[in-house]
């Protein structure tokens, strides 16, 4: 999907949710920000590192949960092993998975895997967290546990950029909604305004699909 002349600013502590029909370029945007997709022109500025959580979790199957979390802090950030381990255990405790520290990814449920993926990104202390359809691959009964973690992060005033098709979740978590279609920003508004009084026809049509 091609993005065209798109400009977006996320303030510190803000939660921006990107919505739009499938194939509109939402995920491409996240991949550009994270440098996984090349950009032809323009620039991306972040104050620090971005942490990314994928739809398909992408835990490393050959490493235990704890090792998954500790790999990048140790090898990339060259941090102290003891301190990293302590933080990893604290984070796991916060998402209710401390007893899974020595399990391997294939022993976890989808919801558990995604929670591990989130704390694996958090442990790097990123300036901004990027969530790419983090609930799309989950069974309905596991969506809740992952969304709770994200809502909790929002309450802690984490800067986040979230791509999702869960409208209720978008509404609950977002400070601002950005509606994208065909690679362009069509509408940008506060969460309440977007859902109650969408301005453009395209946004209205898009929201109608979810209403009925």
């Amino acid at each position: 999907m091609v993005l065209d002349n798109l400009s977006l600013e996320v303030k510190k502590g803000e939660v921006v949710v990107i919505v739009g029909p499938s194939g509109c370029g939402k995920s491409t945007l996240l991949r550009c920000i994270n440098g996984l997709e090349p950009i032809q022109s323009g620039s991306i500025e972040t104050d620090g590192q971005a942490g990314m959580v994928f739809q398909s979790y992408e835990l490393f199957p050959h490493l235990s949960v704890l090792k998954n979390m500790m790999l990048a802090p140790l090898k990339v950030q060259k941090r102290e092993k003891k301190e990293v381990k302590k933080e990893a255990m604290e984070l796991l405790k916060r998402v209710g998975l401390e007893e899974k520290a020595d399990s391997y990814p294939q022993q976890l449920s989808g919801g558990q895997k995604q929670r591990v993926a989130i704390v694996r990104a958090l442990i790097l202390h990123p300036e901004i967290l990027l969530f790419d359809e983090v609930t799309a691959a989950l069974d309905p009964e596991m969506v809740r546990e992952v969304l709770d973690v994200v809502l909790d992060l929002a309450r802690q005033k984490r800067t986040m950029l979230v791509v999702t098709h869960e409208m209720q979740f978008a509404r609950a978590v977002a400070d601002r909604i950005v509606f994208i279609d065909e690679g362009k920003i069509i509408e940008e508004a506060s969460s309440e305004e977007f859902f109650e009084h969408p301005k453009t026809d395209r946004a209205k049509r898009f929201l109608n699909v979810f209403r009925y």
């Binding site: 994270n34 996984l36 971005a50 992408e58 490393f60 990048a72």
Partner: peptide, 8 residues
């Protein structure tokens, strides 16, 4: 990509 996005 997941590894790259962790800064590796």
């Amino acid at each position: 990509e997941s590894a790259y996005s962790l800064g590796m």
